[in-house]
Design a protein around this nucleic acid. Sequence first.
DNA 1: AATAATTTGTATCTAAAAGATATATTTAGA
DNA 2: TCTAAATATATCTTTTAGATACAAATTATT
Lengths: 193, 193
Amino acid sequence: MSSKKNKTSYVILGLLNEENLSGYEIKRIVDDRLSFFWNESFGQIYPELKRLTSEGLIAVSSADRPVYSKQSIKYEITEPGRLELQEWLKSPVEKELIRFEILLKLYFSNANSSDTMLEHVKEFQTSHLRQQQLFQQFEAQLKQNIDVHSNHRQILMVLSFGQKMWEAYAAWSEETLRLLEQNITAQEDDTDE
Amino acid sequence: MSSKKNKTSYVILGLLNEENLSGYEIKRIVDDRLSFFWNESFGQIYPELKRLTSEGLIAVSSADRPVYSKQSIKYEITEPGRLELQEWLKSPVEKELIRFEILLKLYFSNANSSDTMLEHVKEFQTSHLRQQQLFQQFEAQLKQNIDVHSNHRQILMVLSFGQKMWEAYAAWSEETLRLLEQNITAQEDDTDE
DNA sequence: AATAATTTGTATCTAAAAGATATATTTAGA
DNA sequence: TCTAAATATATCTTTTAGATACAAATTATT
């Protein structure tokens, strides 16, 4: 037990702890609910489902076996799987992983490329506004029908994190667009003289 | 030219565009200045330095050749390298990469594990406060001696992003600690009855 | 009803990145 | 002089991201 595992395995165990799911459904849930702080690919999920099954931490669910000719394979968590999940929850949190290419480009840019950076920041602004709105819907939905998830309080705390991030993104975008515009007009004045 | 490259190559080109550096120095600068939104490992940097050299985008600097017996190899950017960097700056920004294990744990936790989560959030709070303070020093330093970097305005915009993130982290930590404490006292009241 | 397009579902492959480790040199301090 | 820490280059393994292939099932269109 407790052999160091990749993170994908805990995503699977965590989700199966709530309900039986297929690999595809796991991918969908991660994309829909966790994508603002976590992502998984099929290339991680499917091999891991097999490994966890062979290790006895999850099992193919006989209850949800393919009715008629559905090819979907649903998995359920086992007791050892639950223990593994609980142990991981208690283990120290690993440092977050962050990569913002936009900041890398901004860092390496100069006054001359302010117009390009302006476009980049505008795109950043609108794409995150869209993402924020999508999650606000989810949040509103969650607040209406309480107790659908046993852990709805925890989910709300996670969503609050997202909310604060998007607010920070919005404020930074506004501020940075202003600064870049200043750069551009300053540049134009230079060439005019 | 413009063959799709891994991001490490642009970090190298971007930094060498300012000054000649060795692999080790590149790693240090990334750790010291970019680490709050970007990271690189030696395992990425050294092979990439060789590849970029063989492609002619960078070159071993003869100017900074080892005086006496220093084994350090410094690299300089070439004209094709500068072009490659400029092209990348103009290319669309890729979506940021984010992985917060703490949010994953919180999402999969329940009321029973509030005490564990409380410890996790406390650790999160203090480690980011420390990081924020380190970068505030860098920012103050940068604001004093302007024009050491030609792109100091851009660097300040990047640092402002960090600042807003750390403020969001702090606010979320406070809020979440309060909520988790409520959970714990509610649990205790339950078991008392 | 036939066809086309989309969604659901499982699976694998490659390239990129993280993290760990090995090793040697140089510098600073006890 | 010996030791510890910092500098420096290098490689190896595991993990992850992203792309792609393919087939069945569902939905939409004509």
